[in-house]
Amino acid sequence: MRILWLVLSPLIALAVGLFFLGLSRRVMARIHWRYGPPLYQPLIEIFRYFTQKGSSHGVLFGLGIVLSLAGSIVVILFLPFGGICSMSGSGGMLVVLYMMLLAPLGIALSGGEAANPNASIGISRKLMLALGYELPFLLIVLAIMTHYDTISLVDIVSAQRETASAFASFPLVLSGIAYLLILPAMLGMRPFEVVHAPQEISSGPIAEYSGPYLGLVTIQHALTTFIGISLFVNLVWGGAGNPFVFFLKMLVVLAFGLFVNAAFPRLRVEQAVRYLWRWPTLIAFVGLILVVTLGR
């Protein structure tokens, strides 16, 4: 049974992630008063990328993107998906935090090898932005881990399901609010879209990708969206007992992200980091202090 889920959960994540990509294009189109592409448009595009001729810039160029995607797949194995968690006992949230590094690191290495300054600029922005949202994010994660006194994600979810989700319990609600405030940054949506910025730095890190490489990057994007949203649902929205409810919760979170995405222009990276280190950090910090003081 466990083996089955080991195989299935990346596939489910891929399907959900691709559905989310298609859905978000559709929703954005409707907000723009357009029809938009069909829901399966990302699939068409990935298929097209894989049948095109790719241009490689060196061994690391391919290796980096493979590493990045593999890292994302492993993270998915560690994340509970509505009662299913394939690898629950191998290090918990700390491993997840670290495995989440592999995805940006792989892209950064492979984009750097491409020798295109657009890619380098994009990567430098990505890393700075990540430093920006990691501070409130770590505060949130630590508040949750301290409150439930465990580093295991499965335990965090089950503890929330026994009592109430973090959003509905007192000191943790602050962490939840802070998480909402940084969610667009973690998903790379506007106003924190400065990493890719197609009009400005030609999609940043992925400027030099073509053919199958671009296909893998698109899959990677789908998985990253899945990971970002499911982490949110698991950490502060109590996960779910079955995959279907979990999926519905993810949809709601995605919709929130999309509405923010549609309403805001792009921030410069300094503005973004300044925002992230101001309000979300402050709220998350207060949340952590309350958790520590009330918990004792």
């Binding site: 790719g54 241009s55 490689s56 199958p212």
Partner: peptide, 12 residues
């Protein structure tokens, strides 16, 4: 394997 199964790649 997925990457290998994709189209032809040229070095640039």
């Amino acid at each position: 394997l997925v990457l290998k199964s994709g189209g032809r790649k040229v070095s640039v």
